[in-house]
Design a protein around this nucleic acid. Structure first.
Length: 348
DNA sequence: TGGATTTGACCCAA
DNA sequence: TTGGGTCAAATCCA
Protein backbone atom coordinates (compact mmCIF):
# COMPACT_ATOMS: atom_id res chain seq x y z
CA UNK A 1 0.00 0.00 0.00
CA UNK A 2 1.34 3.24 -0.89
CA UNK A 3 1.34 5.86 1.71
CA UNK A 4 -0.83 8.70 0.71
CA UNK A 5 -2.77 6.78 -1.85
CA UNK A 6 -6.14 8.18 -2.63
CA UNK A 7 -7.85 5.23 -1.13
CA UNK A 8 -6.07 5.59 2.16
CA UNK A 9 -6.40 9.26 2.18
CA UNK A 10 -10.12 9.28 1.68
CA UNK A 11 -10.64 6.40 3.99
CA UNK A 12 -8.68 8.14 6.63
CA UNK A 13 -10.59 11.33 6.21
CA UNK A 14 -13.80 9.46 6.18
CA UNK A 15 -13.05 7.53 9.30
CA UNK A 16 -11.94 10.52 11.22
CA UNK A 17 -14.94 12.47 10.08
CA UNK A 18 -17.31 9.73 11.00
CA UNK A 19 -15.70 9.33 14.34
CA UNK A 20 -16.11 12.97 15.03
CA UNK A 21 -19.73 13.00 13.95
CA UNK A 22 -20.53 9.98 15.98
CA UNK A 23 -18.83 11.46 18.97
CA UNK A 24 -21.01 14.52 18.55
CA UNK A 25 -24.08 12.35 18.40
CA UNK A 26 -23.02 10.61 21.51
CA UNK A 27 -22.48 13.89 23.23
CA UNK A 28 -25.97 14.94 22.30
CA UNK A 29 -27.37 11.72 23.56
CA UNK A 30 -25.50 11.90 26.77
CA UNK A 31 -26.77 15.37 27.37
CA UNK A 32 -30.34 14.75 26.29
CA UNK A 33 -30.88 11.20 27.40
CA UNK A 34 -32.56 10.37 24.15
CA UNK A 35 -31.15 7.66 21.99
CA UNK A 36 -31.97 7.19 18.39
CA UNK A 37 -29.10 4.81 18.28
CA UNK A 38 -27.80 2.72 21.12
CA UNK A 39 -24.98 4.43 22.85
CA UNK A 40 -22.79 1.43 22.92
CA UNK A 41 -23.24 1.07 19.21
CA UNK A 42 -22.28 4.64 18.71
CA UNK A 43 -19.30 4.15 20.88
CA UNK A 44 -18.23 1.18 18.92
CA UNK A 45 -18.61 3.00 15.67
CA UNK A 46 -16.57 5.85 16.99
CA UNK A 47 -13.92 3.55 18.22
CA UNK A 48 -13.81 1.59 15.04
CA UNK A 49 -13.57 4.72 12.97
CA UNK A 50 -10.69 6.06 14.90
CA UNK A 51 -9.04 2.74 15.05
CA UNK A 52 -9.23 2.22 11.35
CA UNK A 53 -7.76 5.62 10.83
CA UNK A 54 -4.95 4.80 13.17
CA UNK A 55 -4.39 1.51 11.51
CA UNK A 56 -4.16 3.15 8.19
CA UNK A 57 -1.57 5.47 9.55
CA UNK A 58 0.31 2.67 11.17
CA UNK A 59 0.11 0.48 8.18
CA UNK A 60 1.33 3.15 5.91
CA UNK A 61 4.10 3.96 8.26
CA UNK A 62 5.15 0.36 8.12
CA UNK A 63 4.98 0.21 4.39
CA UNK A 64 7.47 2.95 4.20
CA UNK A 65 9.80 0.70 6.04
CA UNK A 66 8.83 -2.18 3.90
CA UNK A 67 10.08 -0.65 0.80
CA UNK A 68 13.50 -0.46 2.25
CA UNK A 69 13.52 -3.87 3.73
CA UNK A 70 15.31 -6.50 1.81
CA UNK A 71 14.16 -9.32 3.98
CA UNK A 72 11.39 -10.65 6.11
CA UNK A 73 10.87 -7.58 8.12
CA UNK A 74 8.31 -6.45 5.69
CA UNK A 75 6.06 -9.04 7.03
CA UNK A 76 5.91 -7.48 10.38
CA UNK A 77 4.36 -4.17 9.89
CA UNK A 78 0.73 -4.75 9.17
CA UNK A 79 0.16 -7.05 12.02
CA UNK A 80 0.45 -4.41 14.57
CA UNK A 81 -2.82 -3.14 15.59
CA UNK A 82 -4.14 -0.55 17.88
CA UNK A 83 -6.37 -1.24 20.72
CA UNK A 84 -8.90 1.33 21.46
CA UNK A 85 -9.91 -0.57 24.49
CA UNK A 86 -6.63 0.10 26.04
CA UNK A 87 -6.63 -2.85 28.33
CA UNK A 88 -3.21 -3.74 29.62
CA UNK A 89 -3.35 -7.02 27.85
CA UNK A 90 -4.16 -5.46 24.57
CA UNK A 91 -1.68 -2.73 24.98
CA UNK A 92 0.90 -5.33 25.64
CA UNK A 93 -0.04 -7.00 22.45
CA UNK A 94 0.22 -3.80 20.58
CA UNK A 95 3.52 -2.97 22.10
CA UNK A 96 4.79 -6.42 21.53
CA UNK A 97 3.78 -6.45 17.94
CA UNK A 98 5.21 -3.08 17.35
CA UNK A 99 8.36 -4.21 19.00
CA UNK A 100 8.29 -7.29 16.84
CA UNK A 101 8.22 -5.13 13.84
CA UNK A 102 11.09 -3.12 15.07
CA UNK A 103 13.01 -6.23 15.84
CA UNK A 104 12.31 -7.58 12.44
CA UNK A 105 13.83 -4.59 10.90
CA UNK A 106 17.00 -5.28 12.71
CA UNK A 107 17.36 -9.00 12.90
CA UNK A 108 15.51 -10.82 10.23
CA UNK A 109 16.65 -14.25 11.22
CA UNK A 110 15.67 -14.10 14.81
CA UNK A 111 12.98 -16.44 15.76
CA UNK A 112 9.87 -15.43 17.50
CA UNK A 113 10.11 -11.97 16.21
CA UNK A 114 7.66 -12.33 13.43
CA UNK A 115 4.13 -11.25 14.07
CA UNK A 116 1.84 -14.15 14.41
CA UNK A 117 -1.83 -14.78 14.50
CA UNK A 118 -3.75 -17.94 14.81
CA UNK A 119 -6.82 -19.22 13.15
CA UNK A 120 -8.71 -22.33 13.77
CA UNK A 121 -10.44 -24.07 10.99
CA UNK A 122 -13.10 -26.57 11.66
CA UNK A 123 -13.45 -29.14 9.03
CA UNK A 124 -16.95 -30.29 8.43
CA UNK A 125 -17.04 -34.02 7.97
CA UNK A 126 -20.24 -33.72 6.05
CA UNK A 127 -18.38 -31.82 3.46
CA UNK A 128 -16.05 -34.61 2.88
CA UNK A 129 -13.19 -32.38 3.75
CA UNK A 130 -10.47 -33.82 5.79
CA UNK A 131 -8.50 -30.72 6.27
CA UNK A 132 -8.62 -26.98 6.14
CA UNK A 133 -8.88 -25.24 2.86
CA UNK A 134 -6.18 -23.35 1.15
CA UNK A 135 -5.94 -19.70 1.93
CA UNK A 136 -5.10 -18.25 -1.39
CA UNK A 137 -1.40 -18.38 -1.08
CA UNK A 138 0.83 -21.09 -2.28
CA UNK A 139 2.65 -22.78 0.51
CA UNK A 140 5.46 -25.17 0.47
CA UNK A 141 5.83 -27.60 3.27
CA UNK A 142 9.29 -27.55 4.68
CA UNK A 143 8.98 -29.50 7.82
CA UNK A 144 6.94 -31.55 10.17
CA UNK A 145 7.58 -32.18 13.76
CA UNK A 146 6.09 -34.01 16.63
CA UNK A 147 5.25 -31.59 19.33
CA UNK A 148 5.58 -32.49 22.93
CA UNK A 149 2.20 -33.22 24.40
CA UNK A 150 0.44 -33.04 21.12
CA UNK A 151 -1.18 -36.01 19.52
CA UNK A 152 -0.60 -34.80 16.03
CA UNK A 153 2.54 -33.51 14.45
CA UNK A 154 2.86 -29.92 13.45
CA UNK A 155 3.46 -29.09 9.86
CA UNK A 156 5.49 -26.14 8.75
CA UNK A 157 4.83 -24.25 5.59
CA UNK A 158 6.47 -21.32 3.98
CA UNK A 159 5.48 -19.25 1.05
CA UNK A 160 6.41 -20.81 -2.24
CA UNK A 161 7.69 -17.45 -3.33
CA UNK A 162 10.03 -17.01 -0.43
CA UNK A 163 13.01 -16.63 -2.66
CA UNK A 164 11.42 -15.40 -5.82
CA UNK A 165 9.58 -12.59 -4.13
CA UNK A 166 11.27 -12.44 -0.85
CA UNK A 167 8.08 -13.40 0.83
CA UNK A 168 8.83 -14.76 4.27
CA UNK A 169 5.41 -15.64 5.40
CA UNK A 170 5.15 -18.99 7.10
CA UNK A 171 2.45 -20.93 8.74
CA UNK A 172 2.14 -23.84 11.05
CA UNK A 173 -0.69 -26.27 10.93
CA UNK A 174 -1.49 -28.21 14.01
CA UNK A 175 -4.41 -30.51 14.33
CA UNK A 176 -6.21 -30.05 17.58
CA UNK A 177 -5.82 -32.74 20.15
CA UNK A 178 -9.24 -32.24 21.51
CA UNK A 179 -11.04 -32.11 18.25
CA UNK A 180 -9.29 -33.62 15.27
CA UNK A 181 -11.64 -31.77 13.01
CA UNK A 182 -10.12 -28.53 14.17
CA UNK A 183 -6.88 -27.27 12.74
CA UNK A 184 -4.94 -24.57 14.43
CA UNK A 185 -3.18 -22.56 11.81
CA UNK A 186 -0.59 -20.14 12.98
CA UNK A 187 0.54 -17.61 10.47
CA UNK A 188 3.81 -15.86 10.90
CA UNK A 189 4.69 -12.88 8.90
CA UNK A 190 2.68 -11.39 6.14
CA UNK A 191 2.78 -12.17 2.51
CA UNK A 192 4.49 -9.64 0.39
CA UNK A 193 3.79 -11.67 -2.65
CA UNK A 194 0.47 -10.67 -4.02
CA UNK A 195 -1.32 -13.85 -5.05
CA UNK A 196 -3.19 -11.90 -7.63
CA UNK A 197 0.06 -11.33 -9.36
CA UNK A 198 1.09 -14.92 -9.24
CA UNK A 199 -0.36 -15.32 -12.60
CA UNK A 200 2.34 -17.69 -13.59
CA UNK A 201 0.61 -20.22 -11.49
CA UNK A 202 -2.65 -21.35 -12.94
CA UNK A 203 -5.15 -21.52 -10.18
CA UNK A 204 -6.20 -25.04 -9.51
CA UNK A 205 -9.85 -25.75 -9.67
CA UNK A 206 -10.54 -28.21 -6.98
CA UNK A 207 -14.08 -29.30 -6.80
CA UNK A 208 -14.36 -30.34 -3.23
CA UNK A 209 -12.95 -27.17 -1.89
CA UNK A 210 -15.99 -25.24 -2.80
CA UNK A 211 -17.59 -26.28 0.32
CA UNK A 212 -18.38 -24.86 3.59
CA UNK A 213 -15.77 -24.55 6.18
CA UNK A 214 -15.86 -22.98 9.53
CA UNK A 215 -13.36 -20.59 10.82
CA UNK A 216 -12.22 -19.71 14.21
CA UNK A 217 -10.13 -16.70 14.67
CA UNK A 218 -7.72 -16.14 17.40
CA UNK A 219 -7.29 -12.51 17.99
CA UNK A 220 -4.49 -12.80 20.42
CA UNK A 221 -2.43 -11.45 17.72
CA UNK A 222 -3.18 -9.78 14.54
CA UNK A 223 -4.32 -10.98 11.28
CA UNK A 224 -3.16 -10.57 7.80
CA UNK A 225 -4.37 -7.97 5.47
CA UNK A 226 -6.26 -8.00 2.27
CA UNK A 227 -9.73 -8.55 3.45
CA UNK A 228 -11.97 -6.14 1.79
CA UNK A 229 -13.70 -8.63 -0.31
CA UNK A 230 -14.41 -10.76 2.61
CA UNK A 231 -15.86 -7.82 4.37
CA UNK A 232 -18.42 -7.58 1.71
CA UNK A 233 -19.32 -11.16 2.05
CA UNK A 234 -19.16 -11.14 5.76
CA UNK A 235 -21.90 -8.67 5.82
CA UNK A 236 -24.23 -11.24 4.48
CA UNK A 237 -22.78 -14.40 5.81
CA UNK A 238 -21.02 -13.93 9.02
CA UNK A 239 -22.20 -15.15 12.28
CA UNK A 240 -20.09 -15.33 15.30
CA UNK A 241 -20.49 -17.58 18.21
CA UNK A 242 -18.76 -16.18 21.17
CA UNK A 243 -19.96 -18.66 23.64
CA UNK A 244 -16.55 -20.10 23.95
CA UNK A 245 -14.85 -17.81 26.29
CA UNK A 246 -11.26 -18.04 25.39
CA UNK A 247 -9.52 -16.17 22.76
CA UNK A 248 -10.70 -18.11 19.86
CA UNK A 249 -13.87 -17.09 18.25
CA UNK A 250 -15.82 -19.35 16.08
CA UNK A 251 -16.86 -17.62 12.97
CA UNK A 252 -19.44 -19.91 11.70
CA UNK A 253 -21.08 -20.87 9.56
CA UNK A 254 -18.82 -19.52 6.99
CA UNK A 255 -20.48 -20.75 3.95
CA UNK A 256 -18.96 -19.44 0.85
CA UNK A 257 -21.23 -16.93 -0.65
CA UNK A 258 -21.70 -17.20 -4.32
CA UNK A 259 -19.54 -14.18 -4.78
CA UNK A 260 -16.70 -15.98 -3.19
CA UNK A 261 -17.17 -19.29 -4.79
CA UNK A 262 -15.57 -18.35 -7.95
CA UNK A 263 -12.23 -18.60 -9.51
CA UNK A 264 -10.92 -15.69 -7.60
CA UNK A 265 -11.18 -17.44 -4.36
CA UNK A 266 -11.47 -21.09 -4.78
CA UNK A 267 -9.56 -21.22 -7.91
CA UNK A 268 -6.45 -20.34 -6.11
CA UNK A 269 -6.31 -23.09 -3.62
CA UNK A 270 -2.85 -24.27 -3.84
CA UNK A 271 -2.01 -27.85 -4.38
CA UNK A 272 0.41 -27.64 -1.56
CA UNK A 273 -2.32 -27.09 0.84
CA UNK A 274 -4.38 -29.92 -0.36
CA UNK A 275 -1.51 -32.14 0.30
CA UNK A 276 -1.10 -34.15 3.42
CA UNK A 277 -0.48 -31.82 6.23
CA UNK A 278 0.25 -34.16 8.96
CA UNK A 279 1.12 -37.72 9.23
CA UNK A 280 -1.99 -39.60 9.82
CA UNK A 281 -4.11 -37.02 8.23
CA UNK A 282 -4.90 -36.88 4.65
CA UNK A 283 -5.69 -33.78 2.76
CA UNK A 284 -6.77 -30.76 4.57
CA UNK A 285 -8.23 -27.57 3.60
CA UNK A 286 -7.88 -24.23 5.21
CA UNK A 287 -9.46 -20.93 4.66
CA UNK A 288 -7.94 -17.94 6.12
CA UNK A 289 -9.96 -14.82 6.31
CA UNK A 290 -7.32 -12.70 4.85
CA UNK A 291 -6.45 -14.91 2.09
CA UNK A 292 -9.88 -15.30 0.89
CA UNK A 293 -10.12 -11.67 0.69
CA UNK A 294 -6.79 -11.35 -0.66
CA UNK A 295 -7.91 -13.22 -3.64
CA UNK A 296 -11.18 -11.61 -4.10
CA UNK A 297 -10.11 -8.12 -3.61
CA UNK A 298 -6.92 -8.27 -5.44
CA UNK A 299 -8.62 -7.33 -8.59
CA UNK A 300 -10.37 -4.41 -7.15
CA UNK A 301 -8.07 -3.02 -4.59
CA UNK A 302 -4.61 -3.01 -5.83
CA UNK A 303 -2.23 -2.71 -3.04
CA UNK A 304 -4.82 -2.23 -0.40
CA UNK A 305 -4.22 -5.13 1.80
CA UNK A 306 -4.98 -4.39 5.30
CA UNK A 307 -8.48 -3.44 5.87
CA UNK A 308 -10.49 -6.33 6.98
CA UNK A 309 -7.70 -7.60 9.05
CA UNK A 310 -7.45 -4.32 10.65
CA UNK A 311 -11.11 -4.00 11.02
CA UNK A 312 -11.31 -7.33 12.65
CA UNK A 313 -8.42 -6.50 14.81
CA UNK A 314 -9.66 -3.07 15.48
CA UNK A 315 -13.17 -3.96 16.25
CA UNK A 316 -12.04 -6.92 18.17
CA UNK A 317 -10.26 -4.70 20.51
CA UNK A 318 -13.17 -2.44 21.09
CA UNK A 319 -14.35 -4.64 23.89
CA UNK A 320 -13.15 -7.67 25.61
CA UNK A 321 -14.86 -9.73 23.03
CA UNK A 322 -12.57 -10.05 20.10
CA UNK A 323 -15.37 -9.44 17.71
CA UNK A 324 -17.18 -6.97 19.75
CA UNK A 325 -16.56 -4.21 17.35
CA UNK A 326 -19.02 -5.82 15.08
CA UNK A 327 -21.63 -5.29 17.65
CA UNK A 328 -21.84 -8.87 18.62
CA UNK A 329 -23.57 -9.93 21.68
CA UNK A 330 -22.45 -12.99 23.51
CA UNK A 331 -24.73 -15.11 21.46
CA UNK A 332 -24.97 -15.65 17.84
CA UNK A 333 -25.65 -12.37 16.20
CA UNK A 334 -25.67 -10.97 12.80
CA UNK A 335 -23.06 -8.58 11.69
CA UNK A 336 -24.05 -5.15 12.64
CA UNK A 337 -25.31 -3.51 9.52
CA UNK A 338 -24.40 -0.18 10.94
CA UNK A 339 -20.83 -1.04 11.26
CA UNK A 340 -19.08 1.31 8.92
CA UNK A 341 -17.94 -1.23 6.45
CA UNK A 342 -19.59 0.70 3.76
CA UNK A 343 -17.07 3.36 4.16
CA UNK A 344 -16.50 4.45 0.61
CA UNK A 345 -12.96 3.29 0.60
CA UNK A 346 -13.65 -0.14 1.84
CA UNK A 347 -15.49 -1.35 -1.15
CA UNK A 348 -14.28 1.06 -3.69
C1' DT B 1 12.97 -34.09 -15.00
C1' DG B 2 11.59 -30.53 -12.09
C1' DG B 3 8.97 -29.33 -8.28
C1' DA B 4 6.95 -30.80 -3.92
C1' DT B 5 7.17 -33.59 0.18
C1' DT B 6 9.44 -36.24 3.76
C1' DT B 7 12.45 -36.65 7.42
C1' DG B 8 16.63 -36.64 10.12
C1' DA B 9 19.87 -33.31 11.67
C1' DC B 10 21.01 -28.96 13.14
C1' DC B 11 20.15 -24.33 15.18
C1' DC B 12 18.69 -21.50 18.74
C1' DA B 13 15.66 -19.35 22.21
C1' DA B 14 13.89 -20.17 26.65
C1' DT C 1 19.34 -28.80 28.38
C1' DT C 2 15.25 -29.13 25.93
C1' DG C 3 11.94 -28.56 22.52
C1' DG C 4 10.35 -25.82 18.69
C1' DG C 5 11.69 -24.19 14.20
C1' DT C 6 14.40 -24.63 10.03
C1' DC C 7 17.51 -26.71 6.75
C1' DA C 8 18.64 -29.73 3.23
C1' DA C 9 19.36 -34.29 1.25
C1' DA C 10 16.59 -38.04 -0.09
C1' DT C 11 12.51 -39.40 -2.00
C1' DC C 12 8.19 -39.07 -4.36
C1' DC C 13 5.23 -37.84 -8.06
C1' DA C 14 3.14 -35.86 -12.12
Amino acid sequence: MEYGSNWDYYTLINELTKGMEQAKQLRVQLSSGGASEPRDLLLQKILSSYEKALLILKWNGGSVEQSSQPTPPVSGAPESSVSVEGSPQQNEDVNRNFKDYQDLRDVSKKRKTQPTWTEQVIVSPENGLEGPADDGYTWRKYGQKDILGAKYPRSYYRCTYRHMRNCWATKQVQRSDDDPSVFDITYKGTHVCNPATNSSIPPPQPSSEKQESKLIYNHNNHQPQQQNQMLTNFRANLRVYTGDSENKEIVSPFSFPSTLVDDNILGTYSPSFVSPATSGSSNYFSISPCHMVNLGMAQNLHGSESDLTEIISATASATNSPMAGWDFSTDSVELDPNFPFDTPGFFA
